[in-house]
Amino acid sequence: MSHPESLPEFQVPVIDISAYTGAGGADERADVARKMDSACERVGFVQITGHGIPSDVLDGLTAAVDAFFALPLDVKKNYRADGNRGYSPPKSESLSLSLGLESATRMNDFFEAFNVGTEARSFPELDLSESDYGLNVWPELTDFRPKIDSYYAHAGRVARTLTTVFADALDLPRDYFEYLTDHSIDVMRMNNYALPEGTVTLDGELTGMGAHTDFGIVTVLWADQVAGLQVLGRDGEWHDVQPIDKALLINLGDLTARLTNDRWMSTLHRVKPPIVDGTIRRRRSVAFFHDGNADAVIATLPSHLDADDGLAYEPITVREHVKAKLEGSQKGKANVAAVREAARVLAAQAAHR
């Protein structure tokens, strides 16, 4: 299989998945699967409608996110935690290092974040390690946890629905992804790109979130309709992406690219500072990462061994892959294994010199 030619004009397809979330028939689901296959092959990003998340759940999510990030910085820092959980202050991470790329200023991503996720004790019947799954910390805010838990459950449902669509699109058994995800490392990251006036210098090096690919199988993203998110197209150019009304943005992670030998794209993306009249405009996003079981081995599908000139990825466990990526973004240790992803960033940089 060879990569398709670039689209004449970059666009993120919009796909209505209600055939999978509602009472769609076989023909309707097959049409969705065909559209998903094309979108994943050409772009790696999709906007989905028909996801079935109620408006009141989304309203509760945004209210909870606003309430947490409105807290004083000293209070938020009390909720720092290990294991990709809790609060991350501004400029404490550098996502470009998850690709093994040195940046001019390490730990220069100016977003702040709060993470929750699946815990080892979520699966009492399994002997799972907290080093893989982490322990959540919860801020002492009224109704914060119920609102977050409600959206988290819906986002997880959407992610699992999407893996069913993926299985259909790849001509796999419909339950194919279950053995990879029945005790998945799922993490939900709430991001805030607004900082108090005067705390940053707009000197050209400031990065909202550095260029990176997501770690796992699929990401479900709620985001403000504020400029900032950019996606690297096959043309080597960075393109602005904003969600349409009531849509969620979906992108593939590295592990799905490995399964398909890069026929489906784990697309590089970044967030540039949303600057209006010299000041940073507020931008929020909430990313639900569906990463797979820590002990699952990800290997190229037999049907895709001839993709990318037959250069298959080496099998890797989800645990090994996630660890390498996190050591880059959070601990400043360049990920030397991200060769293909880093090459795409470097090529885009060279094209703009």
Rank of each mutant, 00 (worst) to 15 (best):
1 M>F: 06
3 H>S: 02
7 L>R: 13
10 F>Q: 05
18 S>F: 08
20 Y>K: 08
21 T>W: 12
22 G>N: 11
23 A>Y: 11
28 E>C: 06
31 D>W: 09
32 V>A: 09
34 R>S: 15
34 R>C: 11
36 M>H: 15
36 M>W: 15
37 D>M: 13
41 E>A: 12
42 R>F: 08
45 F>H: 09
49 T>C: 12
50 G>L: 05
53 I>S: 09
59 D>A: 15
60 G>C: 02
60 G>V: 12
70 A>L: 08
70 A>Q: 12
71 L>K: 08
73 L>C: 11
74 D>T: 12
76 K>Y: 06
80 R>D: 10
82 D>I: 13
83 G>W: 09
84 N>E: 11
86 G>W: 04
92 S>M: 07
92 S>D: 03
94 S>K: 07
99 L>N: 00
99 L>K: 04
100 G>H: 07
101 L>C: 03
103 S>A: 14
103 S>Q: 11
104 A>K: 15
106 R>S: 15
112 E>G: 07
114 F>N: 03
115 N>L: 12
115 N>D: 12
116 V>M: 05
118 T>Y: 00
119 E>L: 02
120 A>W: 05
121 R>S: 11
127 D>S: 10
128 L>M: 02
129 S>V: 03
129 S>A: 15
131 S>T: 15
135 L>Q: 15
140 E>G: 13
145 R>S: 12
149 D>Y: 08
150 S>F: 10
155 A>F: 00
156 G>E: 02
156 G>L: 07
159 A>N: 03
159 A>I: 01
164 T>H: 12
165 V>C: 07
166 F>T: 05
169 A>I: 14
173 P>M: 12
175 D>Q: 09
178 E>S: 12
180 L>Y: 14
185 I>H: 10
193 Y>Q: 06
195 L>A: 06
196 P>L: 02
198 G>Q: 01
202 L>T: 09
203 D>P: 01
206 L>T: 01
206 L>W: 10
210 G>Q: 06
211 A>I: 06
213 T>A: 14
214 D>W: 09
214 D>A: 01
214 D>T: 00
216 G>L: 06
218 V>H: 04
218 V>I: 09
224 D>T: 00
227 A>M: 11
228 G>H: 04
228 G>S: 03
237 E>H: 10
240 D>I: 02
241 V>G: 02
243 P>K: 02
251 N>Q: 04
255 L>D: 00
260 T>V: 08
262 D>N: 00
274 P>E: 07
276 V>A: 11
280 I>Q: 02
282 R>S: 15
285 S>K: 07
289 F>L: 09
291 D>W: 06
294 A>W: 01
296 A>M: 00
299 A>Q: 09
300 T>G: 03
303 S>P: 12
304 H>Y: 14
305 L>Q: 14
309 D>P: 10
314 E>D: 14
316 I>Y: 13
325 K>N: 14
326 L>N: 14
328 G>C: 14
329 S>L: 11
330 Q>G: 11
331 K>G: 11
335 N>I: 01
335 N>Y: 07
335 N>M: 05
338 A>V: 08
341 E>D: 12
342 A>D: 01
343 A>D: 04
345 V>R: 03
346 L>G: 10
348 A>V: 07
351 A>W: 00
